[in-house]
Write a protein that binds this DNA or RNA. Structure first.
Lengths: 255, 255
DNA sequence: CCAGCCGTTCGACTATCCTGAATTTTAAAT
DNA sequence: ATTTAAAATTCAGGATAGTCGAACGGCTGG
């Protein structure tokens, strides 16, 4: 009776997943705690947890349940599905070595940019850059770099699905303006994010493609806007990213 | 009616998970393919996939379903749960830099060693060293290093749960012998795996503990047995690993 | 243009999930 | 030790909701 949002969807599986999300939020919880939060009887939660436990989707330590290793293993399959994704890891790290800026590798899934690799030295990244997180394509550097390489109908499709939501005052919300920018991206060979999804952030992104032409994903470097200043510094950075991507594409082609 | 292995366990959730595992095995599948493999009607599978899709546990591309980004995100929470785990990543990489041997960081979950970080340069690791995979504690270097730091009742508990299965002819299957070895590990400050779970592999593992004394996890380096020869080479390696772990513990204490 | 295959929808049946109460276990407090 | 309380787990009945098979419609390839 609650939210009958979509067509025939399985409530049982949905509850199991909801429990997993609760376990993620509050870190390691007991049966009653979850039961209370979800406003469901303890016995119900218990049943779900028992099932998830037997699959190692959660593990139990004393009376506390935690997200389990099998979920990590399955989820990571996303990062190892294609050899190109695996190879991208070391290039993400090299990108960081050379720029000393937070470096990431993302791929397009369902019209969004999904983080597959990050490299940032000691600092533990911001939460929105956790692996598996999704960002929009229209207001990020990698996103625009990837968009620029997609066939036009696909671009349309993605815009139709997600729209062009405004996240800062710099976000491009106009369809025409976006297409013009993508054209510029294609010319330059890289895309720029000038605080379009988070204030004070500047990023440069470049898409990686196969010889066939279809895109694999995108690399980018991000830094505080005030620390990345001067046109030559920016040009130099763009050059570095493009170089790394070229090497990546080359090594992939040879393998 | 098929396998009523455990007590009250939810069949619906179990099927959903089974579907995810199928998706992992054959990479990206269509409804009928999974339906056939699981010997269930297409409509049933369709329902599950619809639910999983709405939670982004799978994504759909054309008629193919793949494991989705939300699963990656949730699973990775295991690696970011504790700040110590996050910090361990860069030390795993430093370990690789210094030894040029495949380096890993694992933690103990449910009596097994779970891979949280790996570093191995370009080579894409073996499948059994994928993140989230679980190895025994009694026949691995990290495993024994971790065991050696656990309170005795806990060790007993773990052995009772998993036994001491033999995986190569070098595996220690005798309880007494294992305890003697753990004593040696405590003396030396490191543990050795002499092809005890895979032939031809040699590994050195060291456990990392908090100042309170309880263990965080373990680091180890692994190489082909024939490439790690000579007592001094081995001693040198052990020294390197112990050093890295010390630094790790120190930095953690300071933070 | 036709034929087959596949994904999706739909309604009825009934398996099974949910629930609240009973039971056991654990932990705390006196 | 003894008692109390709270939490985890088990259980069985009843109603919900997942399963199933058939039918529809869209796509692809011959």
């Amino acid at each position: 009776m609650p939210t009958d949002n979509s067509p025939k969807t399985l409530r049982t599986t949905a509850t199991s997943i909801e429990i997993l999300k609760q376990l993620e939020a509050i870190d390691g919880a007991r049966v009653s705690e979850i039961a209370e939060r979800m406003d469901k009887p303890k016995s119900t939660i218990h049943g779900h947890l028992a099932t998830l436990k037997q699959e190692q989707f959660v593990i139990k330590e004393g009376d506390f349940y935690f997200i389990g290793p099998e979920l990590l293993r399955l989820g990571n399959q996303v990062r190892t599905r294609e050899p190109a994704f695996v190879l991208a890891r070391q290039f993400t790290e090299r990108l960081f070595e050379e720029t000393r800026l937070r470096s990431i590798f993302t791929v397009e899934m369902g019209g969004k940019a999904v983080f597959l690799h990050t490299a940032s030295g000691s600092k533990m990244g911001w939460s929105h850059e956790q692996l598996g997180n999704r960002l929009f394509l229209h207001n990020t550097a990698v996103g625009k770099a990837i968009l620029a390489e997609l066939p036009e109908p696909r671009i349309e499709q993605i815009i139709d699905r997600w729209g062009l939501p405004q996240e800062t005052e710099n976000t491009t919300t106009d369809r025409e303006a976006l297409f013009e920018e993508l054209e510029r991206v294609r010319d330059q060979g890289y895309a720029v994010n000038r605080a379009e999804n988070f204030n004070e952030l500047y990023a440069i992104g470049v898409a990686a493609t196969r010889r066939s032409g279809d895109v694999i994903g995108g690399f980018s470097v991000t830094g505080p806007a005030h620390s990345v200043t001067g046109e030559d510094r920016k040009a130099e950075l763009a050059h570095t990213v493009k170089d790394i991507v070229s090497e990546f594409e080359l090594e992939l082609a040879l393998a």
